[in-house]
């Protein structure tokens, strides 16, 4: 045990809060929003791996792997959509895309 679990969790919490901040302050720029989501997911992964380490079971690591796989799918799809939207409106500002709002 190199460090207590609580230290790891504090580290993950800080990382998660930074991800939230990134999403919120760049909330009009879709690329930066995606980056913020990546940061939050990394914090979650860190918690899984820490748990796995704490109790000596591989399940946490499996879930970390799942997150990686899921993230790669999500990012590829999201970026494809960004490209598609940019092609239509020539912007990455999410607030420009409001066709589905309640009129």
């Amino acid at each position: 045990m190199i460090v207590p679990l609580s230290h790891l969790l504090v580290f993950a919490s800080v990382l998660f809060a930074l991800g939230v901040i990134c999403v919120l302050i760049w909330r009009t720029n879709v690329i930066m929003v995606l980056i913020g989501i990546e940061i939050m997911l990394n914090a979650a992964m860190l918690v899984f791996v820490a748990g796995s380490y704490q109790w000596g079971r591989a399940d946490g690591q499996v879930f970390a792997l799942m997150i990686i796989a899921m993230t790669s799918a999500e990012v590829s799809l999201a970026l494809a959509m960004v490209v598609y939207l940019h092609r239509r409106k020539n912007t990455v500002n999410v607030d420009e895309f409001r066709q589905l709002r309640d009129r």
Binding site: V23, L24, D95, R98
Partner: peptide, 8 residues
């Protein structure tokens, strides 16, 4: 409003 930033 359709503004995703507000939703987030």
């Amino acid at each position: 409003s359709g503004r995703i930033s507000v939703y987030m």
